[in-house]
Design a protein around this nucleic acid. Structure first.
Lengths: 182, 182
DNA sequence: TGTATTATATATCAAATTGATACATTGAGT
DNA sequence: ACTCAATGTATCAATTTGATATATAATACA
């Protein structure tokens, strides 16, 4: 087994649902997965080449007969098997990197007003994203009878639940920082 | 400005509080920061070399006169200035990578029981970590009058708030998955 | 009609990071 | 005396980021 290349699983998971180009894969990551996953072109395209070489995916017919280069990929049986073998292993590594919290943790070196600014900016971003997620959630809850929507609902629900926790925390800690006399 | 090397800020932030070896820096990351940040030796030691070359940190006297190699680093004025310039910039990039949610998102390819297992494992890990965090929080809340403890409290509080949200979500989504007939 | 901007699409690169491994010393327990 | 865990530095291939380059197609709008 090669080193743990998570982009492989992302690609296989997405292609298991529909055929896609590298560009479209990037769009799916940025829209459907962005509140719990990230990925850049610099890892997508090399992974596509590698997965094709391994027989996990193949180029499928390009229905668009324009001059523009366009490689549409589809998953193979080998790819599906690999995807499933990853899914059934319940071991997961969850990596968080909140630069916001890092700045807060080291906030002793600056005025509290600086830390409050950092939190406020985070709070505004989360507030905006939360309102979008809530709309998703409300729409998905109506179609939960179709199995394919359930899995999307679960992750959106995770986003809503955690983002609301973030916002509660923002209010609490801003009060603490503003109460401090520094 | 070089590429965004976050390990630099982690090291400067920690050294701003006390002098440390690379090994001790790793321990601080794994204990105090681990629920919102991660870092490995492979990025710590090269960053130390680079920061020393830039004059941000210096080797300080090694009080331990044993034969073992031991490089204790301290922050310089230049390092402190760089740390502060990073702190006052409220822009933060927060990167989350939950492999657990990735598996859940692609759960349509396997039985719901598989997804439930993945969630249960996550739930158990979080439950254990939460109990530790709660003890930290209770101890810190008693010493909030000392400013240095406030910043640690804020991040611990973030952990408690979000971990509790995770657990509520685990219960909710397991019910949904078990209700489904697949 | 022309033309500017945005979206689609692939590709590459240096720098940063991970996760593993190697190696050596010290301390604690048995 | 011996073993295991902790301390400590260092390096490596594989992976990932974030930026940049290049080009075509579609849309807006003047």
């Amino acid at each position: 087994m090669a080193k743990d290349n998570k982009m492989n699983q992302v690609i296989l998971g997405l292609l298991n649902h529909e055929n896609l180009t590298g560009y479209e894969i990037k769009k799916r990551i940025d829209s459907s997965l962005h509140y719990f996953w990230k990925g850049s072109f610099g890892s997508i395209y090399p992974a596509l080449v590698s997965l094709e070489k391994q027989g996990m995916i193949t180029k499928v017919d390009n229905e668009d007969n324009s001059k523009r280069e366009r490689n549409v990929y589809g998953i193979t049986d080998a790819g599906r098997n690999y995807l499933i073998s990853w899914l059934v292993d319940s071991k997961t590594s969850n990596s968080l990197k909140y630069e916001m919290l890092l700045k807060l943790f080291f906030g002793g070196a600056v005025d509290n007003a600086v830390s409050v600014d950092t939190i406020t900016k985070f709070e505004n971003e989360i507030t905006e994203e939360l309102s979008v997620l809530k709309v998703y959630k409300e729409n998905l809850i109506k179609v939960l009878n179709e199995r394919e929507h359930v899995f999307y609902y679960l992750t959106v629900s995770f986003g809503v639940e955690t983002y609301e926790a973030y916002l509660r925390w923002c209010i609490e800690v801003k009060q603490i920082l503003l109460k401090e006399d520094n």
